[in-house]
Design a protein around this nucleic acid. Structure first.
Lengths: 268, 268
DNA sequence: AGAAGGACCAGTGGTCCGTA
DNA sequence: AGAAGGACCAGTGGTCCGTA
């Protein structure tokens, strides 16, 4: 049965289709497997229910076709249609998306996969004495594609980075948000938008408003560029607070009362 | 007189023409002056003997013309000739270049100036909530130009980065090399080439052969990209040693004897 | 000849918008 | 309508080569 697969808080746990390792060797790439040290748990590669036909037909070699069809009603779009990834829906933690959909655990899993691809690219670069990327760059996306992970692409990953950030930085809040938005029947776009606010709150609580340093201090998040929009929101909110506290302090007499710590990078 | 200006070990000290601050305000830039904390000494901007006509005639405002001509024989190339920076010559530490030449203290000073421009760009970026560069990027070179430092350009700075690196990482060795090459009457190109080897030695002694981490751990050097050629040389030398020690250990019986620490990033 | 730097180029970060 | 991702674009890192 498949209905009992709930309540695995992390990105793993939707244990249908235990697919074979998809991180295959590409141009001498090292399998980096167990040397993670971040999530603790063994990161067995899982994929949510999804038919994988590679987008372009005449490509290289390894196309690990999984032919266990446990999806219901996939009628005829088998042969060589322009096959996109199924759209995401808002799922609770541990919940498997049904029908032609993908869940959010799967989304977050993609970020971890990208990080693994980055580690492989880094290992190759060091081996060869080349410049070593610290972030998930175009080079990493290209590598992922060549390694057979055709379902990974830059626009998608960039689109949801801040959702993954919330998942990393405050998993409880992230989970609560997912449950609330699923409850209300909101679509993925709405959930995605809603992920911004809690992150701004985290930057505020941190005191520095420095979203870059927050990203960089988290081991799984540090490999991702801070999304422009998130940076803008943090900056706008800091300015808003700054203005407010300046006004209130000039009203209350201008004494050194409330918030002194911002603008520490002011002119000299 | 000017002949007594020797023996200032650092990049400062060639105290002719104490020119006014050339880090002028550009589009709201903060003068960052004293908040350095790296060199300790007050970094009063000095320039070696050099006539400054800006390259392009019809430009904005501030062109701090210094008209004390202590240079000998600059005949007639005053008006609007295509004026390049004087070429570098190999000088001892503290030595002022005579004639239409620039010395190496001046060269190294340019690197410090670029870092100050970077700090200004960083401050502006933080102020505005924009992405904040960690290295001397195109943006910084553009900013330097707009700030009136038309004598700074990317090809030049990139060309001599490793020379500056040696100056930062082992000033004694750097000074010795300069004296030796001046003694022998070598040109700048030869001196520049010779700067590579001691750096490879430093990477070797460090044990990791990781020239990137060596650059990044030095506060003044960390803002510069590691030159491709230097990275290649370090890698090649590591490989050479690796091969040699592998051969010798297979000759001596293959026991775990000599160098085990490299290839720590090997396949799993 | 030796050297300074304008200007070019392949590949980047970023994301829009034609597609399904 | 909501969403996935090919493909474009301005500006980057890197350095060659026409210039002086």
């Amino acid at each position: 049965g498949a209905a009992t697969v709930v309540d695995a808080l992390s990105t793993e746990g939707l244990s249908e289709e235990p697919v074979q390792q998809e991180i295959v060797g590409v141009e001498g790439a090292a399998d980096v497997g167990g040397s993670e040290g971040v999530m603790g748990k063994k990161m067995t590669q899982l994929r949510s229910s999804r038919r994988r036909k590679p987008a372009r037909r005449p490509r290289g070699g390894q196309d690990n076709e999984e032919d266990e069809c446990d999806d219901e009603e996939d009628e005829d779009e088998e042969e060589n249609r322009r096959q996109r990834e199924h759209p995401f829906i808002v799922t609770e933690p541990g919940e498997v998306a049904r029908g032609k959909k993908n869940g959010l655990d799967y989304l977050f899993h993609l970020y971890d996969q990208c990080r693994e691809f980055l580690v492989q690219v880094q290992n190759m670069a060091k081996e060869r004495g080349e410049k070593c990327p610290t972030k998930v760059t175009n080079q990493v996306f290209r590598y992922a594609k060549k390694a057979g992970a055709s379902y990974i692409n830059k626009p998608k990953m960039r689109h949801y980075v801040h959702c993954y950030a919330l998942h990393c930085l405050d998993e409880e809040a992230s989970n609560a948000l997912r449950r609330a938005f699923k409850e209300r029947g909101e679509n993925v776009g709405a959930w995605r938008q809603a992920c911004y606010r809690p992150l701004v709150g985290i930057a505020a609580r941190d005191g520095s408003w420095d979203i870059d340093s927050i990203f960089n201090s988290h081991p799984r998040l540090s490999v991702w560029y801070v999304p422009t929009r998130l940076r803008q929101l943090c900056h706008a909110e800091r300015s808003r607070l700054c203005t407010a506290s300046a006004a209130s302090s000039s009203v209350s007499g201008g004494g050194p009362t409330t918030a002194q710590h911002h603008h520490h990078q002011h002119h000299q």
